[in-house]
C-alpha cells in the first residue's frame, strides 16, 4: 500500500489564523501539503455540521484555528468555538471516530511560525492515527 497521506481541513478565522497562514507564506515557512485552509470570519462560525460533514466525506483530520484567548475580534467567538469543538469531540468518540482527529488551536495574526508548526504537528499526528475509520469503511 502506498504511503498514507491524510487529508486535513483547517477552518481558519479571518482575523488571526488566516492571517497567520499568509504570514507563514510570506516568510516561506514550509508545512505539509495535506492541510487545506477554509476561511471563516470567526472560528465560532464553524458549525458542528461543517465538522461532521468533513469527516463524513472522508477527511482524516479537522482543526479549527482561531485567535488567542482574549484576542477574538468578536469578543469571545474563539472560546465558544473551543467549547463546540470539545462537544463534537465527544460526539465523534461516540460514533467511533477518534476524537484526536479534531482539534481547536489558537494563534495570533503574527504567528506565521506557529501556523506552520501546528500544521506540521497535526499532520504528523493524523498520519500516525492512520486513515479515518469512515474512509476505511467506505473503501470496503
Amino acid at each position: 500500500m502506498e504511503k498514507f497521506e491524510p487529508v486535513i481541513v483547517a477552518f481558519c478565522c479571518h482575523y488571526c489564523a488566516y492571517t497567520a497562514a499568509d504570514m507563514a507564506g510570506s516568510q516561506r515557512l514550509p508545512y505539509p501539503t495535506n492541510v487545506k485552509v477554509i476561511q471563516v470570519p470567526c472560528s465560532c462560525k464553524v458549525d458542528a455540521l461543517h465538522i461532521v460533514k468533513a469527516f463524513e466525506k472522508g477527511a482524516d483530520g479537522v482543526y479549527v484555528a482561531g485567535c488567542l484567548e482574549g484576542d477574538c475580534h468578536f469578543k469571545n467567538g474563539n472560546e465558544k468555538a473551543a467549547r463546540r469543538v470539545e462537544y463534537v469531540q465527544k460526539y465523534l468518540d461516540e460514533i467511533g471516530i477518534e476524537s484526536e482527529r479534531l482539534e481547536m488551536v489558537m494563534m495570533s495574526a503574527g504567528m506565521g511560525y506557529r501556523f506552520a508548526q501546528v500544521a506540521t504537528e497535526i499532520t504528523e499526528k493524523i498520519r500516525k492515527l492512520g486513515p479515518s475509520p469512515i474512509k476505511t469503511a467506505t473503501a470496503l
Binding site: V7, K53, A54, K57, A59
Partner: peptide, 17 residues
C-alpha cells in the same frame, strides 16, 4: 453561507467519497 462553506468541503473530499 453554509452551502458555500460545505461546497468547499465537498469539493476537497469529493474524490475520496
Amino acid at each position: 453561507e453554509d452551502d458555500r462553506i460545505l461546497a468547499k468541503v465537498e469539493q476537497l473530499l469529493e474524490r475520496i467519497s
